[in-house]
Amino acid sequence: MLLELRDVHVHYGKIEALKGVSLQVDEGEIVSLIGGNGAGKTTTLKTISGLRSCSSGSVYFEGADIGSMPGHRRVLAGIGQAPEGRGIFPGMSVHENLLMGAYARKDDHSKELAEAYELFPRLAERRTQAAGTMSGGEQQMLAIGRALLSKPKVLLLDEPSMGLAPMLVQQIFSIIEEINRRGTTILLVEQNAQQALRLAHRAYVLETGRIVRSAPASELLDDPQVRAAYLGGDVGDAGGAPGASGGVALGKTAKGGSEEEASEAGEAGAANGAKDA
């Protein structure tokens, strides 16, 4: 078992964002976490990477309890993350942004740098360009490439297709599949549930801070309740599910706003967001 959460509870003030989440990610897998806005998906990833603390429960990585381990040491241990919203450094060049992914490393990172440029040729073409002047798709490539510079054993991807055109979505998912083929385990949070389930080996469904279903991804893809809730109906339709990328956009509510905003907006707002999810 590479990564495991056991009965994890996380609070934002008095609001409980995660209510006993337990999940497992085996080495070599792609595991998807799907659910509506405010369900706790981003909070789950931040808890794994050390950006949020558990109120109770445990996070295990390679068999060791890392609950008290600070975030930068989790990166060194092998947990990398490409966050929601990309989080690139706009005034720095593409090359400088990539090097930030290896900031905590003391060993040679030339292999990972070459691999990032190989996976994302566009980044190689624009290595001296200011990252803030690139398109959204290019910035997403940069965020993933930067995470790979930390040499992760497990890569946490938070909404990698959000805001991208369908053609770029397909490209990003193909690259994610290739990263996994090369040996990196992936835990994927994704608004495009249909694409996520097609890509993953296994998946979990998260609703208002609780895991309500776990199964092989292909089984969830064909499940009538999952289709109705997250895939917009029959996934066998020629046109796919509603939405520009062929799936329901789960990362936003009808009112807009990210999951993290819903979680941190205050007690009343968070409670309403959980009910809407």
Rank of each mutant, 00 (worst) to 15 (best):
Y103I: 02
V75Q: 09
L113P: 01
G137A: 14
E125P: 00
R181W: 00
L99F: 03
T184A: 04
P152K: 14
P152Q: 14
A143W: 04
R126N: 13
V205Q: 09
L155S: 09
R146E: 11
L187R: 09
Q170C: 02
E112D: 15
L98Q: 13
Q194I: 00
G132L: 13
T208V: 14
Q129G: 08
R126I: 06
V189F: 08
G85W: 05
N97F: 04
R127K: 15
E115A: 14
L187H: 06
P90C: 14
E84G: 04
L168F: 12
E207H: 14
R127T: 04
V205K: 04
G71F: 02
R73Q: 14
E177A: 15
I144V: 15
I172C: 10
K111G: 02
P121R: 06
L142I: 05
L197N: 03
R146T: 10
L164W: 00
L76S: 05
R181G: 06
A77D: 08
Q195W: 01
M92S: 09
A77L: 13
G101Q: 05
G91C: 01
K151Y: 02
G132F: 09
S174F: 03
V75L: 09
L206T: 13
L164V: 08
V189N: 07
Q129I: 11
L168H: 05
H109A: 12
E138N: 08
G209F: 07
Q139V: 11
E96K: 12
I79Q: 02
A193C: 09
G91P: 00
E159W: 10
H201R: 08
Q129N: 08
E118T: 10
Q129K: 11
K151S: 15
A131C: 03
D107A: 11
D158L: 11
N192W: 00
Q195L: 15
R73I: 03
L99N: 15
G137W: 07
V94L: 10
E118R: 15
A193H: 03
